[in-house]
Nucleic acid binder design. Sequence first.
DNA 1: GCTGGCTCCTTGATCGTTCCAATCCACCGG
DNA 2: CCGGTGGATTGGAACGATCAAGGAGCCAGC
Lengths: 347, 347
Amino acid sequence: MSRTESRGTGFIPVSPPTLADVAERAGVSRQTVSNAVNNPDLLRPGTLERVREAIEEMGYSPNRAARNLRTRSSQLIGLRVLPAQEGTANAMMDRFVHTLVDTSAEAGYHVLLFAGDNDDPVGGYDHLLRATAVDAFVVTDTYLGNPQAAWLTEQRAPFVAFGRPWDQPQATHPWVDVDGAAGTRLATEHLIEKGHTRIAWIGWRKDSPIGEDRRAGWLGAMHDAGHPTTGLASRVEDTVQSGAEAAAVLLDESAPTAFVCASDTLAMGVLHTLWIRQLAPGRDIAVVGFDDSQVAQVFPVGLTSVRQPLEDVAVAIVRALESLLGHVHEPNPGVLLTPTLAVRESS
Amino acid sequence: MSRTESRGTGFIPVSPPTLADVAERAGVSRQTVSNAVNNPDLLRPGTLERVREAIEEMGYSPNRAARNLRTRSSQLIGLRVLPAQEGTANAMMDRFVHTLVDTSAEAGYHVLLFAGDNDDPVGGYDHLLRATAVDAFVVTDTYLGNPQAAWLTEQRAPFVAFGRPWDQPQATHPWVDVDGAAGTRLATEHLIEKGHTRIAWIGWRKDSPIGEDRRAGWLGAMHDAGHPTTGLASRVEDTVQSGAEAAAVLLDESAPTAFVCASDTLAMGVLHTLWIRQLAPGRDIAVVGFDDSQVAQVFPVGLTSVRQPLEDVAVAIVRALESLLGHVHEPNPGVLLTPTLAVRESS
DNA sequence: GCTGGCTCCTTGATCGTTCCAATCCACCGG
DNA sequence: CCGGTGGATTGGAACGATCAAGGAGCCAGC
């Protein structure tokens, strides 16, 4: 009963060969072909060879849906995408997603994107979970008060977070994060080494633990070096405009010679103010941003910026996912990676 | 035979309810529940109500794998992601992908990302196709000589291309593209309106049909206005450095008062040269870029840029996919959309 | 009263794979 | 010669949904 023959009639697309087709051709049973694919060690070398030839000749690939149904797994990892933010410098997700896709592929997984909805933060997760459409999630927006991590834990859904559980220190889910404080410390120490003593900080509002973390790096480095910090810190919204205004105020009131910013967006604001005041970035005033965005890279006066090791983050996340899905209990659920500093002309 | 009871023992995660579970609870057959989900019109209102209640109470969602197996479709759309390019201004894929995910979701599809490999341009496609892991593809990198479109056509795989089949005018696959020439024409006419007559062009090498298309828009607008173009065009690599050098040469030799560029990356190069020469963008020399990247948006002197309607592109692509997968024959396979101009201080 | 047609619902088969238990076979020691 | 052993292979069942037929039940019409 050759199925390809009975089906391959004219325009109707020929359906791909199945296990049974391959089995018939190789003169073995379905299960043997299945084993050849999944547990080659179980076959005698000769048989394996024969089956492999048949697979090759027929261009066989196991049907995903059937395998998923039987094994109750989809080999898919869900990643929620948020609305693209216009007017900010940050397009780092590109880098992260690409490595995530690459690394997942090596581990035998694909990445499934689904839409996020701020009104219903767990809706998308719920649907995919109940339909067993994905095996696990990667959660990237672990901002304060985000219910996703708690909800997923409650549902016993496997997931790995990009970002520490700031507001839930008792959380036990695996996470991977970048040590923001280490990044800003790196930036500040770099500036101190260049001879700066009055280094200002422009960061986010106090309710952002990520922002406070980054601020702590600047503060720590300044304290360690014995430099003053009073009047040198500012906390604003993450927009170019806010950064520009904060820089203007700081320049007027505290005469800093360098700026460390919580984001490239804010740094662009600083550069804007310098531009207006005819101050040359790097020569007159040093500026360091955060995220090493494309903006930092192509800006005429290259912007020195803290670069998150997003590739390493993605790799660590996939590792965590693997041990999670392989039912290997990982004793230490948290991974903290250290960023680097991309030094350019602005410092 | 209550399955949830027999399974929900202690730590073992309770498997989601199945069609049969819901059917038992609602006192109907499996098929009736299936119809309640997929063809509600077939049920009597009372029955439908009853089944819906059962579905609601049990939190039932159809198992994706089972449905996929039976219907021979995955409700997944494959999108190949390319390595993130560093040092260029362009992160427009973010915007595109997000809308694609949103629009696909409305049409009942999810987006599956898979890794691209330059050595094996069709490898990823081939695997997913043979495993019937996706229903269709969105092909974004339709550069010259790219074998994917032809290969997919040959395999009778459903796909929609973002980008015209430049080198294969006889291709019949559906595609959606942005009219680059219209964009640069818009940019050039905008500058002409501002009183400029010596408007220079900085574009890509001649072997890029997209680049030549964009160049044609500038050329056409200049001709129509009766302005000279000789010595005002330059073709270079798509890097900041090349853009800067080209701008320097053009300024020295042809004294343009404005630049239209094939990309924001090149425009950044122009701005670099202006910066060095102490020329103020927008006041002394006008500059227009292409893509409305984040760089254009956050640059201190906002960069006027041609903005591709990526949201509309994504919507059109999903429409095309729908009619493709619904076996509706679309007589006109090509959709050409017109970009807009995001005017900022640089012009 | 029987038929035909309609609406509403049910039953058995099927999609292509992997799990499970059984079978086959060669080899070995007693 | 027989039972035990263990590796290689097999056939049936199951995963959970939809498809394709096939009933009930009801009503109109002759």
